[in-house]
Amino acid sequence: MAKNFDKSKIRQLLIAYISNDIPYADYNELMDYLQEAKNDGELHVFMKQVWNAQQVMKPFSELESKVLYQQILSDKRFTGSTVKIKTPAYKMWYGIAASLALLTLTAVLMLNNSGFYKEKEFVSKNIIKNDIKPGTSKAILTLGDGSRVVLTGSENDSLMKNAANIAKASEGQLVYDHSVKTGQLTYNTIETPRGGKYQIILPDGTKIWLNNSSRLRYPESFSGRKKREVELRGEAYFEVAHNRKQPFVVKTAQQDVQVLGTHFNISNYAEENETRTTLIEGVVKVTKNQGRDPQNGLILAPGQQSVLTEGALHVQPADLEVAMAWKNDYFVFKNEDLPSIMRKISRWYDVDVIYSKNIPDKRYEGSVSQFKDVSEILRKFELTGGVHFKVEGRRITVMP
């Protein structure tokens, strides 16, 4: 195709299209790209390239890509009929499959063809006195001199004046100037509140995405040090700049992770009572901070995940969709109980969650965008039966 295009953006438009949750303007933009590819005789190849561009998601199988291909070819945009965009109440909560692509395809096709749910037949019992918006890019930076700066998505002139080695602090990203070398060991700390995410690029070029309710402590410069050490509390995704002479170490309360250059995710929330390290690319060594048993150090290969809980460290196959969902702005649940799900909702929407008695012991599967208001998220759980919610201020009550 002659036109330049953003594969990641088009991929998100495809997800919204498959789940029948796409605004009319976005629908037209997506169809413009697909129409151009169709005119060039490259539609099938184009869609596969767009979807498979996302490293952490499993690629389309041949069957899945054919289903999507036929769905688009039968779209009214290509047949010449009038286009009507409608957002159903129940879209993506029916049996999760091996990948997010198969999940959305399975959910939509089965719901549309079986008549499993009809909008007019359902009356919500949720009590929503006020809705709650999703989180945004925001954090608090504490500089070496103790001064604190609130980071948002806009330019911050005061920050630029206080820290000469910061090249950029805008658009949800904090970038350090690689050329500035500091002579003394000075640490900065960046913290995301509940309802916040933020990205940081360290002086060595390492990229870090910090999830909500997380904290990262790091030196202003790695120059002259044997190791590049940072401290993490909460959850973060790392793309470490390769430097064989200067290993990168992520320290948490229970473990250390040492790498040379690789992509991985660490989830270390205190309320989860476990630390999960998921390797996407490269090799990492995970070491417990306490004990000297044979499991003290483990080497992970891509697609593996280490779990440290109650002093025991073990390795298991990783579910990359689940591990990377937050970075891709999604909730993805697979066989997950309601308290675990509500802890994630609590952190992202900055709400308190309380429970009435007799909550059903059920497990849930599905995915949904993190850009939805909280009422839309809760309504999907209500549709599964047996659970309802009351939203008052910033408190959610879970009821049978």
Score class of each variant (00 low, 15 high):
4 N>M: 11
7 K>C: 00
7 K>S: 10
8 S>K: 09
13 L>G: 06
20 N>H: 11
20 N>C: 09
23 P>R: 09
26 D>H: 10
34 L>K: 06
36 E>V: 09
42 E>T: 10
48 K>T: 13
48 K>Y: 12
53 A>G: 05
53 A>P: 02
53 A>M: 02
59 P>H: 01
60 F>M: 07
61 S>H: 04
65 S>T: 13
67 V>P: 06
71 Q>I: 10
77 R>Y: 15
84 K>P: 00
86 K>M: 10
88 P>S: 10
89 A>N: 09
92 M>L: 05
93 W>D: 04
97 A>E: 14
98 A>D: 15
100 L>C: 04
101 A>T: 06
101 A>H: 01
102 L>V: 11
110 M>E: 13
112 N>T: 14
116 F>M: 12
120 K>I: 13
122 F>G: 08
122 F>E: 10
123 V>L: 11
127 I>G: 07
127 I>R: 15
128 I>R: 00
129 K>D: 13
131 D>L: 01
136 T>N: 08
136 T>Y: 08
138 K>I: 00
138 K>D: 00
141 L>H: 10
142 T>H: 07
147 S>N: 15
148 R>K: 15
148 R>H: 07
148 R>D: 08
154 S>H: 14
155 E>Q: 12
161 K>T: 15
163 A>M: 02
166 I>K: 05
173 Q>D: 02
182 T>K: 08
182 T>L: 13
184 Q>H: 08
188 N>G: 01
199 Q>R: 08
200 I>P: 01
201 I>G: 08
201 I>P: 03
201 I>R: 13
203 P>D: 04
206 T>V: 05
207 K>L: 01
208 I>D: 00
212 N>T: 15
219 P>H: 07
220 E>Q: 11
220 E>S: 12
223 S>Y: 12
225 R>D: 08
227 K>T: 15
233 R>T: 15
235 E>P: 03
239 E>V: 10
249 V>D: 02
250 V>Q: 01
259 V>A: 11
281 E>I: 01
285 K>W: 06
286 V>T: 00
287 T>G: 04
293 D>E: 14
297 G>S: 15
321 E>W: 08
322 V>M: 07
322 V>T: 06
322 V>I: 12
325 A>E: 07
329 D>P: 09
330 Y>D: 13
338 L>S: 00
343 R>F: 03
343 R>C: 05
353 V>A: 02
360 P>D: 03
363 R>Y: 13
365 E>W: 06
365 E>M: 11
366 G>Y: 00
373 D>R: 09
378 L>C: 04
378 L>I: 02
380 K>Q: 15
381 F>Y: 11
383 L>F: 05
385 G>H: 06
387 V>N: 12
392 E>D: 14
393 G>R: 01
398 V>I: 15
398 V>W: 06
399 M>R: 08
